[in-house]
């Protein structure tokens, strides 16, 4: 094989590999752009994330979903939204206290709320403990007799006493990884690392990538003339 043939083969394969790579760039650009603007995708699916049965009222259930808490009084056949001034989102646990069945808790991703009347009037239950990181996410909640609560977070386990009036770490927040690399990579990908300005820059970058990829594909269809120039 002569040098000229090798060069030509390399050029051809470069063109086609470039074309395939362009498809991935298109996908990454479009999906990255949509990641930045989730509202464009319309309302999100709202699956049930948690359910709890009222120990006092047969057939009464509370369930948690992405938008808050819903109530059924006919054994789960129909549901209506529970009225709350500031409903938590992504409710992953609804739980009745083993001490007092009128005490009910609903755990959202960042918020814990409770009701002392079975779920009619609610209030925030602030979770504060030493070493409480600013972006702590809540994962699960357990209630034990004696007014004890156990809150599993992204950084460890918190134990609450007196129905959540005071909290302390059971496993240290320092036990987990000190640096959230996944989040860092996500923030780099979406530009969120530089805040709102970064997101705008990433939008422009994604649009520029899409533009050069599409124009590149159009040029590729023209027998790859650009590659020979």
């Amino acid at each position: 094989m002569t040098g000229k043939q090798m060069k030509s083969g390399l050029r051809r394969s470069h063109r086609w590999v470039g074309g395939v790579a362009a498809v991935f760039i298109l996908l990454a650009g479009i999906s990255g752009f949509l990641l930045q603007h989730p509202s464009w995708l319309g309302p999100a699916a709202n699956p049930t994330l948690a359910v709890a049965a009222d120990p006092l009222v047969p057939g009464r259930l509370l369930r948690g979903n992405h938008w808050g808490v819903e109530e059924s009084t006919d054994d789960g056949r129909t549901w209506r939204e529970v009225n709350m001034l500031a409903a938590p989102t992504d409710v992953v646990r609804v739980i009745f206290s083993p001490d007092d069945p009128l005490l009910v808790y609903a755990l959202g991703r960042y918020i814990l709320v409770g009701s002392q009347d079975g779920g009619r009037i609610w209030r925030d239950i602030p979770v504060r403990a030493k070493g409480f990181p600013p972006d702590l996410t809540y994962l699960d909640l357990g209630a034990a007799p004696g007014g004890f609560l156990y809150l599993l977070t992204g950084n460890g386990l918190l134990a609450g006493s007196d129905e959540g009036r005071s909290w302390e770490w059971r496993s240290s927040p320092d036990d987990g990884p000190s640096r959230d690399w996944r989040r860092l990579i996500h923030d780099l990908h979406t530009g969120q690392v530089l805040g709102a300005t970064g997101r705008r820059i990433t939008d422009i970058g994604a649009l520029a990538l899409l533009f050069i990829t599409v124009t590149g594909l159009v040029l590729l269809r023209r027998n790859g003339k650009t590659f020979r120039q």
Partner: peptide, 20 residues
């Protein structure tokens, strides 16, 4: 520069851990 800023942000969050 972007990478250094990103790491700085994450480290900043670690510092906030001391006093949310």
């Amino acid at each position: 520069l972007i990478f250094v800023c990103a790491v700085g942000t994450v480290q900043g969050q670690d510092q906030l851990t001391e006093s949310p």
